[in-house]
Design a protein around this nucleic acid. Structure first.
Lengths: 352, 352
DNA sequence: CCGCTGAGCCAAAACCTTTTGGCAACCCGA
DNA sequence: TCGGGTTGCCAAAAGGTTTTGGCTCAGCGG
């Protein structure tokens, strides 16, 4: 390969124009298929083939400068890139962006870096002239969107705007939890326990609320004896489950706050000589990547729509951008995306 | 907040110049602290404070156009964003980029999308004038780098360039595995089994090689009876471990190809009435996010340096970019980053 | 033969910076 | 008073594209 390290002098639209014997205007029109513009078929073919032969690569920076649109969207993640779920959000956003011919620029802000750092990060994105910004957080708390984000359309993932003015998308954990309870109820379970997380994060609420709603919809009276809690790790699931299972009127099913707690529940069951799912059904929440599928029996759980939220954010953002107008204000309701139940093997028919 | 939705007319360097009563040249010099340039202290203060008051935000697109450097680096991931580990690579790259004042633009290519798609993705990044490209893959196979990548400095993560010309970084799985064996040997284990993956990926090699090297270094003769294999999932770990453990001369420790297989090993041990780690020690590989810590007893394993590889890639890339010259060719040896052992509770002293 | 229309193309401005190559004004020593 | 060296600033070009507002020419109806 002789020409392999030949230095390639960047070829610009001007070079194409010269080679084709037309003006740069014409080349631009042809290559962009500008509507309402007239160029003979012959010329267009010539321009196109010459551009290809020369290996013309448009310079998006220059284009962006002129059109005042960078075709980039910024993804500002607050501590999220650290979590195992992060990838899915990024992936969803990225693929949707690709679909719209946009590129994702990402910055991760550390939670403990403070508001100033976050504003600086937002500014960095804006300096890059991103057409819009996605602000993604781990736990859905209310945030007051940094002022700088107002310079550009923005959407939130996993958080609510305090002013209720920025579109937001969140997982509908309550419905997911309710669905899970419905599943258990349909399998004949009446005594369904909930191993709650003892940590107070807003997400907690949704799961508990959903659990209660599920019971109600199944016509099962609430029984606070069946609600225990522990730290949201395997250890917490273990202790909570032990408490729930180690008595005569033990429940026939345990709904764990998350998959890790469910692992603890498995252990508790095992130690008490109870088999899953034959003696006790166990379900989790999060569909945490390798856990749920690797455990035995495979864990029935609920998946968080990370990918979908990422994609939703980009889609919504592009809509906002298109509708240009300076009025991507006006209050909106947050969008709650469904959390699908993923059926595996940890639930059995109950016949007690 | 009355002025909240006041439309902010973008303020440019020109506005600052006008307000400060100086030329744009001067403003540029002051704000960029251009060396070898003379401006009175007074003027500089004035310019700076006016820029701040006006809320001047430089337009990096315009700057990039002029300086021919976008200060962006492209991260091209091949299917990787899908894996749970992806986040760590992205995070490492992003944080290192931030440190250098660079922004990360990411694109995920699907493995099955074919070479053309991948070239298109590379081109998309180049159109954006990225200063360099990181190409990250899941399994480290040899790749022949798309031609388009030659337009710009590039580095590989998790793969080797077939031509041996592009810098690459990979996890040193062999050493990690050897360390793990050393750990077991130090704990008195002599009969150490290996539950290998039956799938033939290059990564497999490293772990097996490391296992053998570890044995050798510990002065333990190789015994092929102690090597079994199965699919690289919990199921495979289960069957392989059953085979290894269900006999009289069973090993006192099992090194599993990965954490998921280790989960299978746990189950096999449990079914045979063997306790971990008292009766059999088990170790894994990957330090897969929630598994290793949630399992009981917590799994001793080896972590893959994803974060470090991401950071290394960016650091190396910036070095290449700085050294500008068109000669970021010249062959290089790949860099192998250490895989640290992470000690938990699944290894016990052996005294048989 | 004139005027008008539409087809096909183009020159130049604009986008916002950085950077080159100055030019005045001042000071100082001779 | 003049020459030479600083100091402090600036005008204008350049970077690669899109877009506006043309211009020219051919064809056609009158």
């Amino acid at each position: 390969m002789p020409d392999e390290d030949a230095v390639v002098p960047k070829v610009g639209i001007r070079d194409v124009a010269r080679a084709a014997g037309v003006s740069v205007t014409t080349v631009s029109h042809v290559l962009n298929e500008t509507p309402h513009t007239r160029t003979s078929e012959a010329t267009r073919d010539r321009v196109r083939s010459i551009a290809r032969d020369l290996g013309y690569t448009p310079n998006r920076l220059a284009r962006g400068l002129r059109t005042r649109a960078s075709d980039m969207i910024g993804l500002l993640t607050e501590e999220i890139a650290t979590t195992p779920h992060a990838g899915r959000i990024i992936l969803g956003a990225q693929e949707e962006a690709s679909r719209h011919n946009l590129t994702l620029a990402i910055i991760n802000s550390h939670l403990d870096a403070g508001a100033d750092a976050r504003r600086a990060d937002a500014r960095a994105l804006i300096e890059r002239q991103v057409d819009g910004i996605i602000y993604a957080t781990v736990f859905h708390h209310e945030v007051s969107v940094p002022r700088e984000l107002r310079a550009v359309p923005a959407v939130l993932i996993g958080a609510l705007d305090r002013q209720g003015v920025v579109p937001a998308v969140l997982p509908d954990e309550a419905s997911g939890a309710a669905d899970l309870v419905a599943l258990l109820a349909d399998a004949g379970h009446r005594r369904i326990a909930f191993a709650d997380s003892s940590i107070e994060v807003p997400a907690t609420k949704g799961r508990l609320v959903g659990y209660l709603r599920g019971l109600e919809q199944a016509g099962i009276p609430r029984d606070d004896q069946l609600i225990a809690s522990g730290v949201s790790e395997a250890g917490g699931g273990y202790t909570a489950s032990l408490e729930l299972l180690d008595r005569d009127d033990r429940p026939s099913a345990i709904f764990c706050y998350n998959d890790r707690m469910a692992m603890g529940a498995y252990r508790a069951a095992q130690e008490l000589g109870l088999r899953v799912p034959d003696d006790v059904s166990i379900v989790g929440f999060d569909d945490q990547a390798p856990i749920a599928a690797s455990v035995h029996p495979a864990l029935t759980t609920v998946a968080l729509p990370h990918y979908e939220m990422g994609a939703w954010a980009v889609a919504t953002l592009t809509r906002l951008i298109q509708s240009s107008s300076t009025s991507w204000y006006r209050s909106t309701h947050p969008t709650w995306l469904p959390c699908p139940v993923v059926l595996r093997e940890s639930v059995a028919q109950n016949n007690r």
